[in-house]
Each structure stands twice: as structure tokens, then as C-alpha cells.
Design a protein around this nucleic acid. Sequence first.
DNA 1: GAAAGCAGTTAACACACATTTAATATGATA
DNA 2: TATCATATTAAATGTGTGTTAACTGCTTTC
Lengths: 226, 226
Amino acid sequence: MKKKDIKILLVDDEPDILEIVGYNLSSEGYQISTATNGIEAIAKAKKVKPHLIIMDVMMPEMDGIEACENIRKDSNLANTIITFLTARGEDYSQVAGFDAGADDYITKPIKPKVLVSKVKALLRRLKDDDSNAQIVTVGNIVINREEYKILKDGVEIILPRKEFELLSLLASRPGKVFKREEILDRVWGNEVIVGGRTIDVHIRKLREKIGEDHFKTVKGVGYKYV
Amino acid sequence: MKKKDIKILLVDDEPDILEIVGYNLSSEGYQISTATNGIEAIAKAKKVKPHLIIMDVMMPEMDGIEACENIRKDSNLANTIITFLTARGEDYSQVAGFDAGADDYITKPIKPKVLVSKVKALLRRLKDDDSNAQIVTVGNIVINREEYKILKDGVEIILPRKEFELLSLLASRPGKVFKREEILDRVWGNEVIVGGRTIDVHIRKLREKIGEDHFKTVKGVGYKYV
DNA sequence: GAAAGCAGTTAACACACATTTAATATGATA
DNA sequence: TATCATATTAAATGTGTGTTAACTGCTTTC
């Protein structure tokens, strides 16, 4: 998920806090909405379905704890991460907050850097969730993108980066013919210009390491992994 | 983790306290064991490997602080949460306790409701130990984020902050390759710009201190902890 | 408040090896 | 067979990392 698609709801009764937190997060590229009390927070949460809610504990009308409990009851918001803003040392509110279903705490006074990195850490969960499969299994080959290594018949093989990415691309859709142009685009990047024989050489190395017959040449078009 | 699988060790020299705390927690479904002094506590801790230890500071034979220090040296108990029972206002014991490696405090007189929700909050960490783990054990290395120290084969090693955070990041997902960019983001902070060789130098120091072969270079990509 | 110590960073260079090129061979297709 | 695309090999190039030492602020210490 891209940053600009991530929605954050800020809830605090002090405009200053909304201001500073909002500024820091929106300059990171997140979409920000705000509310100034618990009731408003619940309404906005249902409407915009934020990925993350940062909410003060102490607020007029309805406090953060109550709002949190309320939001937790809405199954549409089950994946929403809720974190409280709390003054350092407000011990009891932390306990109550966790009971209400909070995921984390940010203590006041707020330090922008800490805030931003905490938010990133919290949102990383989302990223990991819907990121494309990091491990692909094709025949007797297991390609582990996360660890940058492959297993061939259970034996670990380390490939240099370009070879790894080329294999990774071809094997991502076994049988599909990738045009040379497309390969250049996706492995090298569209603005990089390399000579005409470069792909061939990498294919050659893969054939040596993985097996001759896995890489079929389609003359005049490109290559496919079988 | 289910409640009935969670083990709590209570340590206090007053039977009344053991009684009341034990009653409240076991009726919540936790598995309770008890000890009446520090020496006994250490023995029981090693034996039952509790998830949480609630321990009085003042005890005959060996006090809680000493017992806590002792328990913290056992890498098998690295994930154990230790919280002290202390009379309200015993300031010094709190400071000494945190030095010894305590995670939290519960003040006497004990209010059952506060006790139970505090215990719940402390144990919540266990639930999501993937994302928020304060203590990571990888092979012969125990990384204790909360206390900013690591144990290698049971020996405490103090690392400077950046080295610690770099190790901590890499070891948080052994095998995963962290891209240089991602490392900069998460250890240095995204707006900080440091020279290209800075990561290398820190990796070098970690290799010296922790072991050459733990840190694999993936050229053109980044590093991984193995 | 000077000296010493430490964490963190930078700079400079070495060096391995990943990547590309160049030159030539092979093979397919019409 | 003539042509064109790919295969193959070795050599050239270049990028990225390793390593050391020096530099910069900070904190600690006396």
C-alpha cells in the first residue's frame, strides 16, 4: 500500500495538537482527517474508515477510552489500529486503554520524530499483510524474495541480483513468454539502456545454475520459464 | 496464547498476599505457582519458566531486587516479565528495581481490579510478540530492547545505540534481507542523510562483536542476520 | 574548563565480483 | 544458402562493499 493511500484520523480537543501532529504526518504523505471529541471521532471513523486512529485519552463529550470501545465494536473497523495519546505517567489510563482495545501508546509531550517512526512502525503491519507473496514455488524451485535466495531441490543457491530478479520475473508466471523489451523494463528499469546481448548472457548463467531446460527461447520474441 | 497456558509466579513472604493475589489471578484462569523468598523464586522460575513473575521487593533470605538480577541472567527466562510489589512511595526500591531489570510495579495495598487489569496489560505483549516483541531470542543471542542490552551465550554485551538498533532490526526477522534504504529509514530515520559507508561501518563493528558469520551481505540489496 | 573518552560519521582507497560489452559462433527460418 | 536472432566465451568495465583512520561533537572526569 502506498503512503498516499493511507488514512489517519487524529482526535484531540486541543487544536495545537491536531495542528502539529497533522502537519508532521501529512508532510510524510499520509491522508489526515481530524475530530475534536469521542463522538465526532466515532462518526468520522465510520465514514472515512481510517487505517490508523491517533486519539487523546482525555477529551470532553466522550473520552478516548469510551470511543475506542465503541469503535472496536464496529466490524468494518476491525483492522483499524488505534493508538492513544497520553501524558507520561498516567498509569491507570494505560491499563484501561489496553482493556478497551488500544494497540499502542504515544506519550506526550510529542516528539515529531518519535511520532513519525512510531506511526510507520504501526502501519508496517498493513504493508506486510497485502504485500505480494514473498515466496514463490515453481516445480522444484523455491524463490524466496524476502531472503534473496532460491532453493533448488532443497539446496540453497545464492544468485547475484540481476540473475535473481530475472529468474524471479520469469518464474512468477511459468509458461508466459516475456518479451525482451518487457524484461528490460522490469529488471533493468525503463530508462536504463544496455546492449542487446546482455539478457542472453544472464539467461546463459541461469541455465548453468538452474538447469538448461527450464529456460525456453522463443526466437524473435523473448524467453519463458518452464 | 490462551489464558490457561499462561504461567504466573508469585513471590512474597506474607501468605496473605500470596492468597489474595493468587486467588484473583487463578480465578481469571492463569496458572499460578508461588515462592516465599528470592532463592526459592529463582529455583521455581528456572523450573516452571513462568511468563510473568510478581515479586515482593522486601523478603527474607534474598530480596526481590537480587532475585530479579539473578533471573535476568538466565537467557531461558529472557522473555519473562517481572513486576514488583512495592509499598506506595518506596521510591528507592523502584529505581533499584528498574536497574535490576523489572518491567513494572504494582503498589500495595493491592486492589484486585487494578491488579488484574495490570496483569492483563503486561501479558498482552506475549500475544503479539511478532510485531512488538521487546525481547528477541535468535540462536545464541538474546536482544532485550527494553533494557538496551544483549546477551550472547549468556554474556552481557553493551552496544552503542546505533549498533544496538541495527542489530535489533536485522535480528527481528532473521533471514530477511533488509535493503539499505530500509535500514536507513528504520535506524537513522528517513530525513537523516548519512554517507554511503555509514551502514557498512556499523555492520563491521557488529561483526567484530557478535560474530562474522551472523551478518550476510547481499550485494546490491542489503544485509541479513542469520 | 581543559582533557580524555566515546559514539557516530566521513573520507579515501582497495578490491572483489557483478555486470556489460565485444567478438565470434551457432542455429533457425525462409 | 543467405539472413537474422540468439549462444557462447572471454575480456573490459564498473559498481558496491570492506576496511582503516581520521574527524566531529558530546559527555564525563578531574
